[in-house]
Computed example of a mutant assay.
Amino acid sequence: MRLLFPFYIVSILWAIPAEIFIQGGSWTVIVKNFILAISPAQLWFLPMLFWIYLVFYFFSDFIERVPIHTILALYVILYIGKLFLNRYVPLNIFQISVSIEYLLYYYMGFLFRRANVAKNSRMKDCAVLISAFILEVIFLLLWIQVKNRFLIDLIQPLVCGFQVAAVLTISRIFRAEKLSVFHTFQKISKNSMGIYLFHQQILYASMKIFTNFSPLLFVAVNFTIAFGVSYGITVILRKGKVGKLMIGESNDLKFA
């Protein structure tokens, strides 16, 4: 519920009003994007994580017991089946289709944590990073040149999987966990959920107001405004029970 509460509350009180008054969205768009959660702006990751958490909650023992190659084989079957079924059934409703793809990335994080951030050899690290770079270049070239969307979708988890592995490798090499000792990092991390939940609609507004800038200044100004305002909103909301419920920090519905 700490995923679904923020999705519905932020949609109703924040994202939908912004869609109507800033973007000029129609009620047809509202129903499609938010009620059916087909394209709910930045909130898409909440229903996506909800489905993934359900899968790992009910199948955690199975995932622990079964060899990695078996899990990957099952994922390939599931993902290819999703691509074919998606032609006839709207699996993108409530982010089900995206959830199937992201199962792989969540599983990679699960393996990374289970391995207790074990060190690889320098050669393996280089192989991961180089492979991720080469695959990304190939994927971008195919994206530009190939019109067959099915082929792009088919190889996307492989490419993204290597990107995830590369990010995890870089974080381990540079020991990203050391950032946690910095006060600024702790403050941002503590409020990161709210920052993400509110930032996009602030960008909608600021990008309509602050337009006559050079590209670099345009990005800097709008990033600063979106980050600062969403951070401030989150800090205020975290002071009360309703606010904590809104950003997923509490399941407590008792306000007495």
Rank of each mutant, 00 (worst) to 15 (best):
M1G: 10
L4K: 08
Y8F: 15
A18K: 01
F21L: 15
I22M: 07
G24H: 03
W27Q: 02
I30D: 04
I30H: 01
V31Q: 12
K32Q: 06
L36W: 06
L36R: 03
A37F: 00
A41W: 06
Q42K: 02
L43S: 01
W44Q: 08
W44F: 08
W44T: 03
F45H: 00
L46P: 02
P47R: 01
P47E: 01
P47K: 08
M48D: 02
W51P: 04
W51T: 05
I52T: 08
V55I: 11
F58L: 08
I63L: 11
V66E: 13
V66R: 13
T70E: 08
Y75L: 07
V76R: 00
Y79E: 05
I80W: 00
K82H: 11
L85Y: 05
R87W: 05
P90Q: 04
I93T: 06
I93K: 07
I93E: 06
I93N: 04
F94L: 07
Q95N: 07
Q95V: 05
I100Q: 01
E101C: 05
L103A: 02
Y105R: 13
Y106V: 09
Y107R: 08
M108L: 15
G109V: 05
L111Q: 10
R114H: 12
R114L: 12
A115I: 03
V117N: 15
V117Y: 15
N120K: 13
M123G: 10
K124N: 15
C126H: 08
A127L: 15
A127M: 10
I130T: 11
S131W: 03
I134F: 11
L135P: 01
L135H: 01
E136K: 11
V137L: 12
I138N: 05
L142W: 06
W143C: 11
V146H: 00
V146Q: 03
K147C: 08
L154R: 02
V159Y: 08
V159G: 09
C160F: 13
G161W: 05
V164M: 14
A166P: 09
L168P: 11
F174V: 15
R175I: 10
R175M: 11
R175L: 09
R175H: 14
K178I: 14
L179T: 14
S180N: 14
S180C: 02
F182M: 07
H183I: 12
K190P: 00
K190I: 01
G194M: 01
G194A: 04
G194S: 05
F198D: 07
Q201D: 10
L203G: 10
Y204K: 02
S206R: 07
S206Q: 12
M207W: 00
K208T: 06
K208E: 07
F210L: 01
T211V: 04
S214I: 04
V219P: 03
A220L: 13
V221F: 02
F223A: 06
T224F: 01
I225Q: 01
A226H: 03
F227C: 00
F227M: 01
G228T: 13
G228W: 00
V235F: 07
I236S: 03
L237E: 04
L237S: 11
R238N: 15
K239S: 08
G240P: 02
K241C: 09
K241M: 12
K244M: 13
M246C: 14
G248Q: 07
G248Y: 02
N251L: 12
K254Q: 14
K254I: 14
F255I: 12
F255K: 10
A256L: 13
A256H: 10
A256C: 06
